Simulated scan of single mutants.
Amino acid sequence: MVLSWLKKSLEARAGTADARGLVIFTTVEEAMKAEKVLKKAGFDCKLVAPPPDMRKGCDLALEIDLVEQTAVARALTGRVSFMGIYPCKGEMEPLQVEKVTRFAEHVMIKSGNMKLVFDIKTGVIVNISGGGCPDIPYLYTRLVGTHLAAAPRPKDEGRTLCALMLDRALEKALEIWKGVALN
């Protein structure tokens, strides 16, 4: 409560209300690890694709509240290597873009270059495909034949952008299986 009031007060004084920043990384693995570290510490952050002119190593960055820049840097230092924190200019590309295709007995969710197919009656994952990352064959063995609700999270098992996209496809598949959304 006090921290929320203090944050709003500082934003008002600095004129930075809703100012967003990007934490830039050299690898996808570092970006994914940083998201876990910051969320566990209570920070509001999300993985985004940085604009081409800001890409320094990988195609992922963390969007943060710029007012929290110092605290974010402190939370990451010694835990995750990052290249810097920079102010955002304009909108970042969302990573939560999926396409859903329904077949007679299956549903396919495409997220990025990754595809996940599950049996609509049983909720069992019947195939994953796409991407070219080295952890995909391993993820295939972990996911195919597993029920959606019991499947391990690809973002926890893998270390690449393909794993992250497959995780987003799994999230969408779970929503569909639970009857929340079928686009």
Rank of each mutant, 00 (worst) to 15 (best):
S4G: 09
S4D: 14
S4A: 15
W5C: 02
W5L: 11
K7M: 12
S9V: 08
L10V: 06
L10C: 10
E11M: 10
R13H: 13
G15W: 04
G15P: 00
A17M: 14
D18E: 15
R20K: 14
R20G: 02
R20L: 00
G21R: 02
L22T: 02
I24Q: 06
T26S: 15
T27R: 02
E30G: 02
E30S: 09
A34H: 01
E35T: 05
E35L: 03
K36P: 10
K36I: 09
V37I: 04
V37Y: 02
K39A: 10
K40D: 15
K40I: 03
A41S: 10
A41G: 09
F43T: 11
D44E: 15
K46I: 00
K46L: 00
L47P: 01
L47M: 07
P52V: 01
M54R: 12
M54G: 04
K56I: 06
C58V: 01
D59N: 08
L60S: 01
I64N: 04
L66A: 15
L66T: 03
E68A: 11
E68L: 02
Q69H: 10
T70M: 03
A71Q: 07
A71F: 02
V72T: 04
T77E: 13
S81E: 11
P87V: 07
C88S: 11
K89S: 13
E91M: 04
P94D: 13
V97P: 00
T101S: 11
H106Q: 13
I109C: 01
I109N: 03
N113C: 06
M114C: 11
M114K: 08
M114Y: 05
K115L: 08
F118A: 07
D119H: 11
I120D: 12
K121S: 13
K121G: 11
T122P: 03
G123V: 00
V126D: 11
V126K: 12
I128L: 06
S129Q: 12
G130K: 07
G130M: 04
C133F: 00
C133P: 01
P134H: 08
Y138P: 09
L143D: 00
T146M: 13
T146S: 13
H147E: 15
A149F: 08
A150L: 08
P152G: 12
R153M: 08
P154I: 07
D156L: 05
E157S: 08
G158W: 01
R159Y: 13
L161C: 01
A169G: 06
A169L: 00
L170D: 07
A173R: 06
A173C: 06
E175M: 06
G179N: 13
V180K: 15
V180T: 14
L182W: 04
